[in-house]
Amino acid sequence: MNNTSRMVVVLLLVGAISGLVLALTFKWTEPMINEIAQSNQKKAILEVLPKAKSYKTMENNNQLFIGYDDNGNEVGLAFIAEGGGFQGDIRMMVGMDTTEEKLTGMTVLSHLETPGLGARIEEDWFKDQFNEKSIEDDFIAKQDVEAITGATISSNAVSNILKNSIPKALDAYRTRGGK
């Protein structure tokens, strides 16, 4: 075999074997990764709706979840809010009480913020400051909520995403026959 065709064959083989190994690893880990994502979502919904014991995904909209207590009464609305952060999109689960019109919790599902700085939006002290805030609040970082030192852009991003997504979620919820 001459040199050129040997090069082609070797590269082809290396690529094919790597591809096969990767495909097998992916097939093997995929169910576990999906399961983790599912259970994380469930955990996040129940975390942001502290009064809820169960929840239902809203029909026609898989980003809205209605929480129920033990007696089957509606206790709140959870929704996925997303928007641009410092380096990539931030996805959050937000919970609110629709009758008292205030937030009951917020948790970060995924983000690409700088580890050690913007990534601190995941920390409890930061997330907990949004509890009990009125949904009409402006959430301005450094005024209404404390910002993360060294990560003003990430803090502002969270505030902006909340401010933009709350009316939209509420609208979607009400037009689909909620209270």
Binding site: V21, L22, T25, F26, T29, M32, I33, I36
Partner: peptide, 10 residues
């Protein structure tokens, strides 16, 4: 990629 998938799963 294997390390990444493995860590994501476990």
């Amino acid at each position: 990629t294997i390390a990444d998938l493995f860590m994501a799963a476990f």
